[in-house]
Design a protein around this nucleic acid. Sequence first.
DNA 1: ACTGGGTCTCGTACACCGTACAAGGGCTCT
DNA 2: AGAGCCCTTGTACGGTGTACGAGACCCAGT
Lengths: 263, 263
Amino acid sequence: MVKAADRAKNPARSSVWLEDRTPRGGGGPAGLDRDRIVVTAIRMLDEEGLTKLSMRKLAAELNVTAMSLYWYVDTKDDIIEYAVDTVYGEIDLAAVDAAGEWRDRIRVLALDYRRMLVRHPWMSPSAGQYLNIGPHAIAVGSKIQEAIRDTGLPLDRQPSAMSAVFQFVYGYGTIESQFERRAAQAGMSQDDFYGESIKAFRDEPAFAEVLEPLGDLLDERASHGNVTEIWNRDFDYAMDVLVAGIETMVSRETRARETRRTR
Amino acid sequence: MVKAADRAKNPARSSVWLEDRTPRGGGGPAGLDRDRIVVTAIRMLDEEGLTKLSMRKLAAELNVTAMSLYWYVDTKDDIIEYAVDTVYGEIDLAAVDAAGEWRDRIRVLALDYRRMLVRHPWMSPSAGQYLNIGPHAIAVGSKIQEAIRDTGLPLDRQPSAMSAVFQFVYGYGTIESQFERRAAQAGMSQDDFYGESIKAFRDEPAFAEVLEPLGDLLDERASHGNVTEIWNRDFDYAMDVLVAGIETMVSRETRARETRRTR
DNA sequence: ACTGGGTCTCGTACACCGTACAAGGGCTCT
DNA sequence: AGAGCCCTTGTACGGTGTACGAGACCCAGT
């Protein structure tokens, strides 16, 4: 274990995964262990949000003092880092393997990833902060890489393609989950919240001008079902674009190679 | 002005842009005004990071007490929200218009957006938190929308395509800027930090297995110039994929329409 | 000239945060 | 009985955001 103060002095090593990872025993009178802490933290994060989680409240939930947690963990950040990896584990990798060819595997993976981000609104801001090299995160990364490998793209292009797909999913999931969180905070359904937001824009004279060209588009969208459907449609179509993009790049690559050969 | 406590009770309206936005005067003895506060905050955020900014430190930088800031602003969050919109203003929209056809406009816009995110590492986490409906953010959104409009995609697909491109840029910029931040924190060059990270993985026996298939890929990358070049190459190629994807979808759409007509 | 009221700044105070440190309590082993 | 480890706790420190009330200044109205 490392004191928080020491950790700060060596930020290159500032990941729980880059040092002693063997959990400390849970035979104590409180029946605590790292897993129970992390699982409880995840539940509280889901319910109350990232900013509301405090060591004292988490400890209270476990019928224990705040300082007890520090036996199992160096830092509050460590708990979040463990939590992040744990929810990476919620992605169903077996389902990905079962999906068949790369197009379907990427789609299944991306959808499950997105759903996970939306289910845990604290994930996107947190995941961005750490190296995400826990076992579950790495397993997901490997599955992504396997899928991209099978596209037939040249090796040196595969990381770029991985970025294109999964940075998109990350960004999309981030925005979507923040929207959900805001709606919930306001105590509205997503549909109502969407309607209110649009109305608020419209009523602001300062925005009317800039929004003018967007007007038709907003009306068009408002007429197409509820917000959840819109999120789904947009996501699906964006995935279509990405898959089509990869296919096109592959075929360009293939054609270029054949031209070289016949010449 | 609204008290922070009241703001919390009505989170639907919890954007500085959705209420009285007229700045309060700066004729006071300290020569303060909202703009000066926000500009200083941005500088401090760039230098010290999001978590290190406190009202007291920001106030000290302006030779003033913390509570003085609350004359111009309801909440610390408001300052961040203003800061976010201000740096959206750094994106050079005139250059976008000058770029010509939609492909180039999208590329210029995406690159400038990405650079902005990297220049201000606190942006991605912050931007995700607010509605981003300030004047500069809206202007950027409009430019994006104009570019996508000219692709020839059907109206109801344009928002999806916008997502695909700019959620990707957001995700990519987020990861890239976090990487830079970590390297800087560790006091290393990005190249050294990258090397160290890879080495740390390799040395962890627990990861060796999962990383095995990635091995070649990592070696391949290590042999291609420095980290900055890798970031640039990956980004450019991902944009190629996205543009190719949009083109392909457009031509599929066109073909489908023609089939319908001739039948 | 005096006064009242707005505009701005400050001092104090509160509740809460993460966590360092040292002092235990309970258990097992000798 | 005593030593030593595992785990929990109490207390304390230095920080945070911000509510509240008391001023200081300036300008308009009488």
